[in-house]
């Protein structure tokens, strides 16, 4: 502290180019090793979901002679009640889980953010209507609602699953975004934007929305994990017909067919999907901090 002669801000002003989004993101990730670990886990699962199924045949081979095999070199995670490789089941099942959870989070955040912004900025009757509907979804327990819904609609395919989870899950985000918008619309920059002649669309989506973006992005990631829990839960209970293999189906079969609760030989079969869900959640939680920093300019420079 005694030797450094720091220049003051007025003495050196050099022209500079703005950092790109990617350089900011990379800097934010590098600041904490835990964020890199989170990103690594996420990338690992996304690659698994996108490319993994290509290495396996459409119908995985069964082998009645080798059921409930212990982990080995040929079957790193053992085999299931039909003698199918558990690793193969995990890899092929990941695509459904991630795809539908991603869609569900997309719908949740899309619906929630737009309705929250609209009700918070315009107030009046749009707010009254949207918030009453949101209250309905918040007070009716979500999971039982999905179970009831599954009796009238088979939403087993990933797009339908994402849509259903999105339509039932937006309310909490809408309420949070609305309350943020209520406070943001009173700031003078919103008033200044009105005075400068910006359109309502520009003000709501161009000025107000970016201030809620860090929260919305974090909600997106958390919605992914929430959706995974819900869909896996639905499959585990067996209320949604099994159309494809996925982690939820695995848990269900491990429980109902293999009796994993009563015997230890099916333990790898039961624990593998559980571990995947846990580690994916863990990765997302570790990654969250970086998202906040990237989207929130105030956190960046210091």
């Amino acid at each position: 502290m005694a030797t450094a002669n720091l220049p003051t801000s007025h003495e050196h002003i050099r022209p500079w180019t703005p950092p790109t989004f990617w350089s900011i993101a990379w800097k934010a990730l590098r600041r904490k090793p835990s964020r890199m670990l989170g990103l690594g886990i996420l990338v690992f699962y996304v690659l698994m979901a996108v490319f993994g199924p290509m290495f396996y045949p459409a119908n995985l081979p069964t082998n009645p002679a080798n059921i409930y095999a212990s982990p080995s070199w040929t079957h790193p995670l053992g085999t299931d009640f039909e003698g199918t490789d558990v690793l193969a089941l995990i890899v092929t099942g990941s695509r459904y889980v991630l795809y539908s959870a991603g869609l569900a989070a997309f719908f949740t955040v899309g619906i929630g953010a737009i309705l929250g912004l609209v009700s918070g900025y315009f107030r009046g009757w749009p707010e009254a209507i949207i918030m009453r509907i949101a209250d309905f979804f918040l007070t009716v327990p979500g999971f039982p609602l999905l179970v009831v819904l599954s009796t009238v609609w088979n939403f087993g395919n990933p797009v339908s699953m994402g849509l259903v989870l999105g339509l039932t899950g937006w309310a909490a985000l809408a309420r949070a975004v609305r309350s943020q918008t209520l406070s943001l619309r009173e700031r003078s920059f919103v008033e200044a934007a009105r005075g400068l002649g910006l359109s309502r669309r520009q003000i709501v989506f161009g000025e107000v929305f970016p201030n809620t973006a860090p929260y919305v992005a974090m909600h997106f990631l958390l919605a992914i994990t929430g959706s995974i829990y819900l869909e896996v839960g639905l499959f585990f209970l067996g209320v949604v017909p099994f159309s494809t293999n996925n982690w939820g189906v695995m848990l269900n079969l491990a429980f109902s067919q293999a009796g994993a609760m009563y015997s230890t030989r099916a333990l790898p079969y039961l624990l593998s999907p559980l571990f995947c869900i846990m580690s994916l959640t863990f990765g997302i939680v570790l990654f969250l901090g970086a998202v906040d920093e990237v989207l929130n300019p105030r956190l960046r420079s210091v």
Partner: peptide
């Protein structure tokens, strides 16, 4: 002229 001191840019010497 100039701006009030920014805590992070106060020169250590002088």
């Amino acid at each position: 002229e100039g701006s009030p001191p920014d805590l992070t840019q106060i020169p250590a010497t002088g």
